[in-house]
């Protein structure tokens, strides 16, 4: 469930805000950011009030999140997200809280290849509307809270666990490139779907064995190469390779998954990626941001 929170909710929220505009001064913007800004709060609550994360509260909350997703997408169907509007901001915040709550309630639920395939499919629905993967996060939360997504036993990789924060940060830097490239054009969706497929492929036995043998620095080199060598016509291949790199990292991470470092690392990576791609005047860097620039 943490994967759904990270890559369907958090990732696509940043993407949507980058497309439709950020109004940092607007108090309504604070509503959208509420689940992210108060990320440590539910973590503390879980430690001191575990009853809030029992089956009944999370089912109620996830059902609320699902209804919010329905209303949010109904308002956006055939339309574009007017980010200063207050009602979509509230709905997105509710969706985020529900996704976050369920992810925290049971960090073991849903591991393995299938979650990445499902995330890939939801990223593909971004072709219909860039906000749809956000609704996917709410569906994940509802299905998880209602017990439809069973915990999958995790087979630990023999390799040393990497630090979650830098790993997520680097992924955030690279993963967002199709979003910055295509903007409101839905061409990014197949690339992100391929990324989910790539992560799922690493659960195949030969690739899993290979992933455990590849040194961590080599995975970082691969991700750095993918940061530089992004070519839209080969986006699907780029996505599969990046997905494999991330799948190998994911399998090395300790369990329970380090929730906060992953969330903050990814968020910072996405924000940094946006800032870098928005500042192409930096002399040497601009050649590294877009191949052929």
């Amino acid at each position: 469930m943490i994967a759904a929170w990270l890559f369907l909710y958090l990732g696509n929220l940043v993407h949507c805000l980058a497309i439709y505009g950020l109004e940092f001064q607007s108090p309504r913007f604070a509503i959208i950011l509420f689940p992210i800004a108060f990320l440590p709060l539910p973590i503390l609550l879980k430690r001191h009030r575990p009853a809030l994360f029992a089956a009944v509260p999370i089912r109620v909350l996830s059902a609320t999140g699902l209804v919010a997703a329905l209303l949010f997408m109904r308002g956006l169907n055939l339309d574009h997200w007017q980010t200063p509007d207050i009602m979509p901001s509230i709905l997105v915040a509710v969706m985020g809280i529900a996704s976050l709550w369920v992810a925290l309630a049971d960090p073991h639920r849903e591991d393995g290849a299938m979650i990445w395939l499902r995330i890939g499919i939801w990223q593909l629905t971004g072709f219909l509307h860039p906000g749809l993967p956000l609704a996917g996060a709410s569906i994940f939360a509802f299905a998880g809270a209602c017990g439809y997504l069973a915990p999958v036993p995790f087979t630990s990789c023999s390799a040393k666990a990497p630090r979650a924060f830098p790993a997520a940060l680097v992924l955030g830097l690279v993963l967002a490139k199709p979003w910055w490239d295509y903007s409101a054009n839905p061409g990014w969706a197949p690339d992100l779907a391929a990324w989910g497929l790539g992560a799922a492929l690493t659960y195949l036995a030969p690739l899993r064995r290979l992933g455990c043998k590849v040194p961590m620095w080599a995975i970082y080199v691969l991700m750095a190469a993918l940061f530089v060598a992004y070519l839209p016509p080969l986006g699907w291949a780029w996505g599969i390779l990046l997905g494999m790199a991330w799948g190998w990292i994911w399998q090395r991470l300790g369990r329970p998954l380090p929730f906060r470092p992953l969330s903050y690392g990814l968020l910072l990576g996405l924000a940094l990626s946006f800032a870098l791609h928005a500042n192409l005047q930096i002399p040497v860097l601009r050649h590294l941001l877009w191949l052929g620039n």
Binding site: L66, A69, L70, M73, R74, L76, N77, M114, R118, I121, W122, T125, L128, L132, A135, G136, I139, F140, F142, A143, Y148, L149, A150
Partner: peptide, 20 residues
């Protein structure tokens, strides 16, 4: 399989409910 059916059904419900 149950998980897939659930996820696909919920996804279809959301897409249909928002599109009709």
């Amino acid at each position: 399989m149950r998980a897939w059916i659930t996820m696909l059904t919920l996804g279809a419900v959301v897409i249909i409910a928002t599109g009709l």
